[in-house]
Amino acid sequence: MAYSDKVLDHYENPRNVGSFDKDDNAVGTGMVGAPACGDVMKLQIKVSDEGVIEDAKFKTYGCGSAIASSSLLTEWVKGKTLAQASEIKNTEIAEELALPPVKVHCSVLAEDAIKAAVEDYNSKKGVVAEGS
């Protein structure tokens, strides 16, 4: 299969690979996909008190398009508010990376990952707020 130059670039030089402490209250973690399906994405965001995503990291098990989708996503979410980040659509990712139809599910997974990370962060804040 022919990959676009952007997929190849993200695949060969993935941005923001790594992990944050998932127990840190400023961190939201989204883990989506399943090994049996051939892809698992872990996206983590570090959020400021003002609700802005200051940093993001990812790890992905999956094909080149899945790795590129998550790498691109970490670049896009930095500096965005949680609300803005939640609005990122898989179609924008698929378009930016010129994903072929059989790989569109990789961008869907990326969208699911950021939504899950935001949700995780929000639920932590909820728990902390109740406890304090």
């Binding site: 690979v17 989506v32 090994p35 698992v40 872990k42 790890k59 098990y61 790795i67 869907v108 699911d112």
Partner: peptide, 22 residues
């Protein structure tokens, strides 16, 4: 790059994880 490798290294039993199927 693999979250599964990281979990394996952390001693997580991957067969016990509840995966979000898609």
């Amino acid at each position: 790059l693999s979250p599964l490798w990281e979990m394996y290294k952390d001693g997580v039993d991957l067969s016990k994880v509840q995966w979000a199927a898609h």
